[in-house]
Design a protein around this nucleic acid. Structure first.
Lengths: 259, 259
DNA sequence: CGTCTATTTGAGCCCCGTCAAAGGCGGTGG
DNA sequence: CCACCGCCTTTGACGGGGCTCAAATAGACG
């Protein structure tokens, strides 16, 4: 797993938007690229925890880019059952590309207090047209998202409850690390056991029992919304984790702005 | 559900490639568009049933477009468990966009005898650059694929075995109908119960029992690789089916070549 | 300090998995 | 035309992983 510090952003990383941090995991962006990304986040919408940002059936008019907080995408069944189909963290798009469709086939909700940048589709398109390096990085980002969906299918279909939860936790930790939201072996982890249940296709009761088992086995520490992973390798083993779907090793670096 | 006959292809539909039939569900293509799609399929590769077309870890060099036969994409776990993450039918891309990545995060296999068009990435890119209507239709196609992945997550995570299998069968029937591969209420259905099991996260034994129940309830007829659906509405009910993820109602028709 | 939500615990059971073996069906060769 | 073989489907008995229902406890927040 490539630590983010191995591919620092050109110049001042401190002010770089989180999206830039993430795309930087694919190809090193130029100062001008980063500035262009920064200009995207002029219009920001704040959403309270547990509120919908967009609902199934609505027409998507803009692109939403998560700037702060955790959220999820989910689908529901007529009998009330709910499946989380993805989480988004700072630097993730909530609904990239969705604006090409007439209506949303899923909903988007905040988990913690969330800030999303609301981006007009024209702004998005002109950014892509004028910044080929960003365009390529966004395509890569999109493919990683699709790979993640496939890995989730594998998770739901084939892993045991124990490994399934371990896998989810590990994936989120690694994604947080890419955008600099971890401190050593720890990170904030605001998901409730209910959220984990909805994402893994289990019940909250069973998630609770599996978390206790994971704690008992010394694989994770998780309390008060704070996660610590004593040994990443041990967790990987428990989760049957294969990092290839995150595509952190790739060819995009030939576009490196510093070359 | 919009029957394909409601949006016939301009002029001679008979020779139109299956991909054109499918994109035509989004926007009516021009004769020139269809000819351009036809030129894509110059190089065709035949694959025997149950053989891999491409394997996890390989570098994707070309785009593969299914022309004939059924196939699937799948991922495996170290313990040997296998999850089918999608099926492809004639007119579907096996791996659109994947060529931007360094290596495949999943494998692709033939189920029946398959013919795939092997398309160079330059050919693909120049097609997109020179045919904006096709480019838009391919974007739509991509979004439908992503919506399908999300629906599969809902299927695996929240539906009962009974509804899960019903949903898979219904989805495949509707997708076959779009490309004209159904006859009334029937179609060929070459999946083994093992294939269904791998796609639904169940065991073949349990798939067998659920199919018997679906047959007993008069919801499907399925024998000798031949499927009949006496009443689509009844099957939809059993599957808790919501067609919105297929995005068959949309705005793309403003690009209609016949306007 | 009271209320609301989230976590934890327990008992019972059911859906689905496992293991094993017996049919059916299509293909192939004698 | 029949015998054989391999794959697929079907059936049965049994066990277990995860669900349900219910209630107690612990935190978070005002």
């Amino acid at each position: 797993m490539r630590a983010n510090s191995l591919s620092p952003i050109h110049g001042s990383a401190a002010q770089a938007p989180t999206l830039a941090l993430k795309l930087n995991a694919f190809t090193r962006l130029s100062v001008e690229d980063i500035e262009a990304l920064q200009r995207l986040t002029r219009s920001v919408r704040s959403v309270e925890p547990r509120r919908d940002i967009m609902r199934e059936g609505e027409q998507p008019l803009h692109v939403h880019l998560a700037v702060k907080g955790w959220g999820c995408r989910y689908k529901s069944l007529p009998d009330g059952k709910r499946q989380v189909v993805g989480f988004f963290l700072p630097g993730d798009f909530c609904d990239l590309n969705a604006y090409a469709l007439k209506e949303m086939d899923h909903s988007i909700a905040a988990i913690t207090p969330v800030k999303v940048a609301v981006i007009g589709r024209e702004d998005m398109e002109s950014l892509i047209d004028s910044h080929p390096r960003i365009a390529q990085a966004l395509r890569w980002n999109d493919l990683v998202d699709q790979g993640t969906q496939r890995e989730w299918l594998l998770n739901l279909g084939q892993r045991s409850a124990y490994a399934r939860i371990a896998h989810l936790i590990l994936e989120l930790f690694l994604r947080l690390r890419i955008v600099g939201m971890t401190e050593g072996h720890s990170c904030d982890f605001p998901l409730t056991q209910n959220d984990i249940a909805d994402a893994t296709g289990l019940t909250a009761v069973h998630v609770n029992r599996m978390l206790q088992e994971l704690r008992g086995d010394g694989i994770i520490e998780l309390e008060r919304k704070r996660l610590t992973i004593p040994d990443l390798e041990v967790l990987k083993e428990a989760a049957m984790f294969n990092p290839n779907y995150l595509h952190l090793e790739h060819e995009g670096r030939h576009l490196d702005a510093s070359n």
